[in-house]
């Protein structure tokens, strides 16, 4: 598998990280190097092996249907880069 600059740009766009052409060119061989090394996993015979789900055997607990949080708008908004009238705000989205 070979990652070219176009792929790097596509992946960066999926991950919402702006990258320049120069970044993409620098990253492509780096990622290729890492991914090439990772690909040795393909040689492991994993037929009839289940993917790991819980690292340490444990079951999912279910919590009671009780309201424990809320009415803390100021705390929720406190670190917001921008907000007004009790809302977070973002550049206008046209739908």
């Amino acid at each position: 598998m070979s990652v070219d600059t176009a792929t790097v740009k596509k992946v960066a766009s999926l991950a919402r990280i702006a990258i320049s052409d120069a970044d993409a060119e620098r990253l492509a061989p780096e990622l290729n190097n890492i991914l090439g090394w990772i690909e040795q996993l393909g040689e492991v015979d994993t037929a009839n092996v289940d993917p790991m789900t819980a690292v340490i055997p444990n079951t999912l607990r279910l919590r009671a249907d009780v309201i424990t949080e809320g009415q803390q708008r100021d705390a929720v908004l406190q670190n917001a880069p921008q907000g007004e009238h009790g809302f977070f705000t973002v550049p206008k989205v046209v739908e």
Partner: peptide
């Protein structure tokens, strides 16, 4: 554990988990 009632004041029924604060974790409601 935030409430679900309809028609509340904006952002008044938001837990730190709902706001995806760093390090917040989900626990499922039975």
């Amino acid at each position: 554990g935030a409430a679900t009632a309809f028609g509340a004041e904006p952002n008044s029924q938001v837990s730190l988990i709902d706001a995806a604060m760093p390090g917040m974790l989900p626990t499922p409601n039975r």
